[in-house]
């Protein structure tokens, strides 16, 4: 119960942080995203797929409520990406930084590709998609480290 509450709180805080972060001109006019990293973390850390998808859906709802994106579109993308990562979790060593990088980039790419199908694909948009995925991959490593450390301190297991 406590962990569920904590996870919901984490998603809420992540969404608020993502909306509050400024757009960095030196990063090419984009802002790093926290929610794809959280979705990747849940997918590779939790045992129950229902919990993974539920948290991913919640993250998607939070995202869409703070965006002009069609409401619900990110629920599907986060949910699908989380489900795929959860299926692959036995083949992935989640403690390795490159796995965390790839997981973060994967969720970001899936979300971006779905967004582009809605708003239209251009060359600039594809460059932005790749650049954003790289940036979010780095965010994922930071999120994995921070949350693993937090869990270790609390003595929580998956």
């Amino acid at each position: 119960m406590m962990r569920t509450f904590f996870a919901i709180l984490l998603v809420t805080a992540g969404a608020a942080l993502q909306a509050a972060l400024p757009v960095f001109a030196w990063l090419g006019g984009i802002r790093p995203e926290v929610l794809p990293a959280l979705v990747a973390y849940f997918a590779l850390s939790l045992k129950r797929p229902a919990a993974v998808v539920a948290l991913a859906a919640l993250a998607g709802l939070m995202h869409d409520s703070l965006s002009a994106a069609p409401f619900g579109v990110t629920v599907a993308t986060f949910g699908a990406a989380a489900q795929v990562l959860w299926w692959l979790r036995d083949w992935l060593e989640r403690g390795l930084p490159w796995v965390q990088l790839v997981a973060g980039a994967f969720v970001s790419l899936v979300t971006g590709i779905v967004a582009l199908t809605l708003i239209g694909v251009t060359a600039v948009a594809v460059v932005k998609l790749v650049w954003l995925a790289l940036l979010n991959a780095v965010v994922a490593v930071v999120v994995f480290f921070a949350l693993d450390y937090g869990r270790m301190q609390m003595g929580w297991d998956a």
Binding site: A19, I30, M62, L66, S67, A68, A115, I119, K128, L132
Partner: peptide
């Protein structure tokens, strides 16, 4: 009071 949480849509709150 807020900007868009997504990098793909452009809105403010």
């Amino acid at each position: 009071i807020g900007r868009d949480a997504s990098n793909w849509w452009k809105s403010i709150q």
